[in-house]
Design a protein around this nucleic acid. Structure first.
Length: 153
DNA sequence: GCCAACGTTGGC
DNA sequence: GCCAACGTTGGC
């Protein structure tokens, strides 16, 4: 089983939006980065768990845990000219972008702020979230990093 | 295939 | 709102 981190702007879709969603499940659409797509398409399996992270907001933080409930399938928002993530170069016959379905496992007892996570930089080598210039919205998390963050809860 | 220009991300 | 870092685009 693998661990992941899903980054999202809470103003767009927050962990509370997920908590209120039908079956507390959503499709993770809108990923338009090849590396992030490849992680979803090639490596994510049903049963994998991921952190739900709030980015670009007042307190960037890990907010909760989600589980993969459906493996990669075409991201239909890429075909919709009215969707902000529309990509005219994604052909429905050969979709360029993929998404997975994730379900809320639980919210953390408290958000774990990025600032706090960064206090453990000496133990976080290889963790994309804290790497310089990181821009991945979907990334793998090593088990030791997963455990470290949960230990801060 | 190079690389400058551009748009986006995201912490602060 | 600023700006550094990054990925993508497109002219050559």
């Amino acid at each position: 089983m693998n661990y992941w981190l899903f980054k999202n702007e809470p103003e767009d879709f927050s962990i509370d939006d997920l908590a209120k969603a039908k079956k507390q499940t959503t499709h993770w659409d809108g990923v338009r980065n090849y590396q992030a797509r490849n992680f979803m398409r090639d490596d994510m399996k049903v049963g994998d768990q991921g952190f739900f992270y709030h980015s670009n907001c007042e307190v960037p933080a890990v907010m909760g845990i989600v589980e993969i409930v459906r493996e990669a399938y075409p991201d239909h928002t890429a075909f919709d000219a009215n969707d902000p993530h529309f990509d005219p170069k994604s052909d429905p016959e050969n979709p360029r972008w993929m998404m997975v379905d994730v379900k809320l496992v639980r919210k953390l007892e408290r958000p774990i702020p990025l600032k706090e996570i960064k206090e453990y930089m000496d133990q976080l080598e290889g963790f994309h979230l804290v790497a310089r210039g990181n821009r991945l919205s979907v990334m793998p998390v090593q088990p030791k990093h997963w455990k470290l963050i949960l230990s801060l809860e």
